[in-house]
Simulated assay, not measured.
Amino acid sequence: MDKYLPIGSVVLLEGGTKRVMIYGRRQQELNTKKIWDYIACLYPEGNINEQYMYLFNHDQIEKIYFIGYQDEEEFEFLKENLAEKPV
């Protein structure tokens, strides 16, 4: 990958048994201030509550099941906001 996966992408994390759907990128963890590549929720359930939000980095993805929606706005966003850390 030469960029982040788009919003809506569905992946399986290493060691996981349930797929998750990406709904945010370059997320900062509140307690530690650590920056993560992605935040996701369970798929197909969606965002249930904060106990079911998953922060992870691209290298923790075991398998990509679906690549989310991409259009000109997505490409411009990547260029302006996420280009400094390709995955």
Rank of each mutant, 00 (worst) to 15 (best):
L5G: 02
I22C: 01
E76S: 10
R25G: 03
V10N: 01
E29V: 07
K3L: 07
R26M: 13
P86I: 09
Y65H: 09
I64L: 00
Q70C: 12
C41T: 12
D37A: 00
K18Y: 12
Q51D: 15
Y65M: 04
G16H: 02
T32R: 04
K79W: 07
Y23K: 05
I22L: 00
K18R: 15
E76I: 12
M1N: 12
M21F: 08
D37C: 01
V20E: 00
P44Y: 03
G46A: 09
L5W: 00
K33M: 13
Y65D: 02
E29F: 04
G8I: 08
Y54S: 08
D59N: 14
Y54F: 15
F56I: 00
T17D: 14
R25N: 08
M1A: 13
I35N: 03
E50F: 13
E74L: 09
E50P: 10
F66W: 13
Q27V: 15
F66Y: 15
L78K: 06
L42A: 10
V20I: 09
F77P: 00
Y69F: 15
F77L: 11
I35Q: 06
E76M: 11
L55K: 05
K33F: 12
E14H: 05
A40P: 07
D2L: 10
I7H: 14
E76C: 06
E62W: 04
K18I: 14
T17Q: 13
V10D: 01
R25Q: 08
E74W: 15
R26K: 14
M1D: 10
G46L: 07
N31V: 14
